[in-house]
Design a protein around this nucleic acid. Structure first.
Length: 425
DNA sequence: TCTGGGGTCCTAGGACCC
DNA sequence: TCTGGGGTCCTAGGACCC
């Protein structure tokens, strides 16, 4: 039986701020957007007593708790602290999967012989986090990810009748208790059940995880979608074999901004795009990553959100390239109603070293400049064709490249001709 | 109460292929 | 010539999470 820990920091952003502002301890403190259009990113328990919670518009938080101290937030600092915390977790087990800056799963199944039972590991971890960082956290222990996550929530401090109720800090759910723990919980507590899904489920009288577990899968699949339906049915019934996956790498990098006043001038919007593309590109380079798909996002004053994307022939980490495509897409969109938010991002990202770049013989010539973009769609069609011809997934990218009269276009790497296809001729 | 910023994953439709 | 099933990639939008 697996033992999975879910470690979740308590009021993380606020608690980090209190490290450098000890004078604010015991006071309502709110970290988040300061402007008229900001929202709360984190609230101290003292502020939660007044009904202030994450994702609430800052204006409302101010009204609820006018004497709270509002801080703008310092993402760079939180990232640094987060890295140290993850390093601390890694001393317990190499199987650490960060979920966000302030949360991680740890698979300690293999660590108990050396470190004692999971509960002992959890308590030790909490005191180490408190000693080294001055921060508190809650730990859930269970045989699966979902239950461990729900258990850590059960271990947290809470608010009851406008008073802070301290949490247990550590909650363990043993395999035999999983069902009785899960069934009474509201469906909304489930990871992946948000307002929309909860609303749809309520039409079938589903209020608790137990109700969800008893709902036939077919109904679930048609109601909330195929994948989500299967998943929810399984986890509600306590079936969750998902492994703790260390070393998952980012799949996209983006930057967006909501303006304090809507922008209408295209020149202003372009200037913003340049700044954002610059930051995205430098983050890509810092991570030695490149991405193939450029994404543009805009939001109108009525909150309607529109996205556009372009997939390039070759992955890029260049700000000018990102800007060129983002501006190209923006030029096709109506900005007359005003633009509340603009964002730019890069997805389909990968590590530069392992990226195999496929190009047509006739488009990729030795003299080509590295950033030439061509429509990638045609190349993908060609790859589909080759894959179908040579047996699909058994054929790797290199073989595909050679088979399709495509070549590997790697700086300094060899190139193959069509005759060298393995198994051909 | 007018709604951040950084992400992940899924769906549906179209193009195209065998 | 027509129809169908199975598959991939791309795009746009949406739900969800912290």
């Amino acid at each position: 039986m697996r033992s999975i820990l879910h470690v979740d920091m308590d009021a993380f952003f606020v608690s980090v701020e209190l490290q450098r502002r000890p004078d604010l301890k015991g006071q309502p403190v709110v970290v988040g957007g300061i402007g008229d259009r900001g929202v709360v990113a984190a609230a101290s328990y003292e502020a939660r007593v007044f009904g202030v919670f994450s994702a609430m518009p800052s204006t409302r938080a101010r009204r609820l708790c006018p004497h709270a101290v509002f801080l703008p937030g310092d993402h760079g600092l939180y990232s640094q602290v987060s890295r140290r915390l993850m390093a601390l977790f890694a001393q317990v087990t190499p199987l650490v999967e960060p979920l966000s800056l302030d949360e991680a799963f740890l698979d300690v199944s293999g660590a108990t012989r050396l470190l004692g039972p999971p509960v002992a590991i959890a308590h030790r971890l909490r005191s180490e986090v408190l000693e080294t960082e001055g921060l508190r956290c809650s730990v859930g222990i269970a045989p699966s990810k979902l239950v461990a996550k729900l258990a850590s929530q059960a271990a947290k401090p809470g608010i009851e009748r406008r008073k802070v109720v301290p949490g247990e800090g550590v909650t363990e759910i043993l395999p035999n208790d999983v069902e009785s723990f899960l069934r009474p919980l509201p469906v909304r507590a489930m990871w992946g059940v948000g307002p929309k899904t909860a609303e749809r489920l309520s039409k079938f009288g589903v209020r608790t995880v137990g109700d969800l577990a008893d709902l036939p899968v077919e109904i679930l699949r048609t109601t909330v979608g195929d994948a989500n339906g299967r998943h929810l049915h399984a986890v509600a019934n306590g079936i969750d074999d998902r492994p703790v996956e260390p070393g998952r790498s980012a799949k996209s990098i983006s930057h967006e901004e909501t303006f304090s006043r809507d922008l209408v001038d295209r020149a202003d919007l372009r200037r913003e795009l340049v700044k954002m593309a610059d930051s995205v590109a430098s983050r890509l380079r810092a991570a030695s990553m490149r991405g193939r798909t450029i994404n543009l996002k805009i939001r109108y004053p009525d909150f309607r959100t529109v996205t556009r994307s372009t997939t390039l022939e070759r992955a890029t980490d260049s700000a000018p390239t990102i800007v060129r495509h983002a501006v190209g897409m923006l030029d096709q969109l109506d900005v007359a109603p005003g633009i509340r938010l603009i964002g730019v991002g890069v997805s389909q990202i990968g590590d530069q070293a392992s990226a195999v770049q496929l190009t047509f013989d006739d488009v990729a010539e030795p003299g080509d400049e590295p950033d030439t973009e061509k429509d990638w769609t045609a190349t993908n069609r060609a790859i589909d064709q080759i894959r179908a011809q040579f047996g699909g997934s058994a054929i790797g990218p290199a073989a595909l490249a050679t088979g399709g009269r495509l070549k590997r276009h790697h700086p300094g790497s060899q190139q193959w001709g069509p005759n060298e296809l393995p198994g051909e001729d």
